[in-house]
Nucleic acid binder design. Structure first.
Lengths: 187, 187
DNA sequence: TTAAGAAGTTAGATTAATCTAACAAATTTA
DNA sequence: TAAATTTGTTAGATTAATCTAACTTCTTAA
């Protein structure tokens, strides 16, 4: 079994992977807020466990096995966020930190109960897709707001930043998912 | 803040305390399944943090502060068990291990949401009282089954053993809380 | 194309929580 | 009450995850 710490590294690797599936040690270090030497040594451990492919001075890549484990953690995180919003009545800006804790619960039953109660959701409250039980992700691609122009009309489908502060800012502008927007100006 | 491990020691101290509020190092060691020298050293740490009173070769006692912290952990554990049964549809025999993990979640809001959704319950699914937000416990005393005699009629109110195995055994005998029983024989 | 800067690694220290072995104190029992 | 047993402590080792300091490799820009 993987430790909670190992799970956090795998999750970060999954989320930071570029199209080639690669992540630099530096990126990982910054996102986890853990110094590079620590990251290097943990990567070696994950490599021994066949969860990542690693060669000195090269970016890290999840193996199939590592990707599957990571997808399950992301699945649990996003299911939890959905559960917190839909069943427990939290706001979308409150759930990230709680889900970071609950995603590590060792009990498959716990998460399948959530899934059931939520009627098998495919997106979380921030518009991110929930991997299915096999780790597969429905990969709809949304257009990034930075690639839209003045005059475009778009439907707001997802955020990539789930921090409380940013979501509170959106709340204050009364921006929520599935809102239809006409872009009149760019800040 | 206290570590998850410290929280587990405090919880065990609370649950194992006799009328004088004392717990032997040996008891604690057996219940936590941690060797005595480890327990001794952790007790010293809790003593430094003013969470327990400790003198060499004497039993350990929670301070007021330690008792308050412990009661909050028990509160979170029991609220969680109730939530798992009432909101998520788990059986009473499944919830102990999951609650042991969720009780450590750092988010007062999370537990007050549970409390609200459950309409402020005072007992958990095993008949144990849930400490209130100030750590106070409604102390109804139930008669122990071992102190009942053949011919007595009683109402089954609580179990002191919440292990899956024991609760499954009770399920197999169709024994559930609030069942009226006439004692016809003693096994 | 090489010198500067960024990224990555190695070595070794630190901390929290655990363990075993050996010893000391307290309690029980013969 | 003295010996045996149980309980508790001390000392020192171990493991996982972290850190800092020093060094190496890679990348970039003059």
């Amino acid at each position: 079994m993987n430790s909670l710490v190992e799970e956090n590294y795998l999750k970060a690797l999954f989320l930071l992977s570029n199209r080639e599936g690669e992540v630099s040690v530096n990126d990982l270090s910054r996102h986890l807020d853990i110094k590079m030497p620590t990251v290097t040594s943990m990567i070696k451990k994950l490599s021994d466990k066949q969860l990542v492919d690693y060669q000195k001075y090269k970016p890290v890549k999840l193996t199939i096995k590592g990707r599957d484990v990571a997808a399950q953690i992301i699945r649990k995180h996003r299911l939890t966020e959905m559960f917190l919003v839909e069943i427990m009545g939290f706001g979308w800006e409150e759930v990230h930190d709680i889900a970071e804790q609950i995603e590590h619960v060792k009990s498959p039953r716990f998460f399948s109960k959530m899934d059931e109660l939520l009627h098998y959701p495919t997106y979380d409250p921030h518009g991110s897709p929930i991997p299915d039980a096999n780790g597969h992700i429905p990969d709809k691609e949304f257009r990034q707001l930075s690639k839209c122009e003045i005059g475009d009309t778009v439907i707001f489908k997802a955020v990539t930043n789930s921090s409380t502060a940013f979501l509170k800012y959106l709340n204050s502008k009364e921006l929520s998912l599935d809102t239809r927007l006409k872009i009149v100006d760019i800040e």
